[in-house]
Design a protein around this nucleic acid. Structure first.
Lengths: 192, 192
DNA sequence: GTCTATAACTGGATAGAC
DNA sequence: GTCTATCCAGTTATAGAC
């Protein structure tokens, strides 16, 4: 069992708190309390709050890329892989119900703060978008692969937002079923 | 030309700032600067920040109800009325691109703050949900009118979130077209 | 109803001892 | 690498003059 570095502990704690409480609402004390270090020590590892945010985003990018790579292997067909994506809504439903989607909510918070790291945060969306686009290309939807990728991404965002607002996990299941049906229909038609 | 009361001016300014900057990020000074009153005077009108938030939500509820009533009159058929709803995305696209949906983003922010007025904010979602449900009932979709209402609501949320993240107004137009097509198809089939 | 002054507190950030 | 002590700016909120 390796010892986890303080820096890593800070990133993990901040990652979670930024999701659950929002970036701005999370203070250095909040993070320091979880990691059980003093606020002063904090500054040895990160000089500014933005530095922590940058590290958290970087951490999420790496985790996301690893997840996409895993789906790439797990799914036998492009359709199966897209359904892997759709199913994260089910897997993460209890947290989504409480806090929404980690990607969408951070992106929106930073947009309202007019924060300089907004573009970096939106990179997470691009990872999903490009990956989905690739799958739709393989599905033979060459002419509108990007449009379909955006549609599936928008679907996931809408479901997360409403599941959060109405505190409703069942709604997630219902909509995922609808989306799977739509994806299956897509295979057999060429409708835009 | 009637003089607008200071109280009303505060509510209008707060309404806008909460949308553009978020609730927590907006300070009393921000609002006071716009209304051009001192921070001290502020407390004559509202004792706490939560009181302003409550007034802003109440204000939005009234505006929303008026808008729904207007659509009720403007649209000749239930389908036309639902399309009125979908088209707010087009009408408000420039602001949505910058700040997302005012309903969804406030709801999510308050959820993360674990704020006591979260339920009041979510009432805005319920207004739309119930109104849409009514239209789908009239469309003859008795058995899943609520599920369809939620689907259309989720659609609007997803589109707003992605339009904001990717700074893309065109995406809004594209998805609205897709939704209108889907609504038209719904009339002729009984597919869930 | 509006103002100034100020209290009470919290947040991010620094300096320097250990 | 970790700590305590401290600074400074910004925020909510109050008291009291005009």
């Amino acid at each position: 069992m390796n010892k986890v570095s303080t820096r890593e502990q800070i990133i993990t704690a901040a990652d979670e708190l930024f999701y659950e409480q929002g970036f701005e609402h999370t203070s250095f004390s909040d993070i320091a309390n979880i990691v059980e270090i003093s606020r002063g020590n904090f500054y040895y590892h990160f000089k500014t709050k933005d530095e922590i945010l940058a590290a958290v985003i970087q951490h999420r990018v790496i985790k996301t890329q690893a997840m996409l790579d895993k789906w790439e292997n797990d799914g036998d067909t492009p359709l199966a892989r897209i359904i892997c994506f759709v199913n994260i809504l089910i897997t993460n439903r209890s947290k989504i119900k409480l806090y929404g989607c980690p990607v969408g909510t951070l992106s929106n918070e930073l947009a309202k703060l007019d924060h300089q790291l907004l573009n970096e945060a939106n990179e997470l969306f691009s990872l999903f978008r490009d990956w989905l686009k690739k799958q739709f290309l393989l599905l033979g939807q060459a002419s509108h692969s990007d449009s379909l990728a955006m549609h599936v991404l928008a679907f996931s965002q809408g479901v997360a937002t409403l599941a959060n607002a109405f505190n409703d996990e069942n709604f997630i299941k219902q909509e995922v079923k609808r989306m799977e049906q739509w994806l299956n229909d897509l295979k057999t038609t060429t409708k835009v």
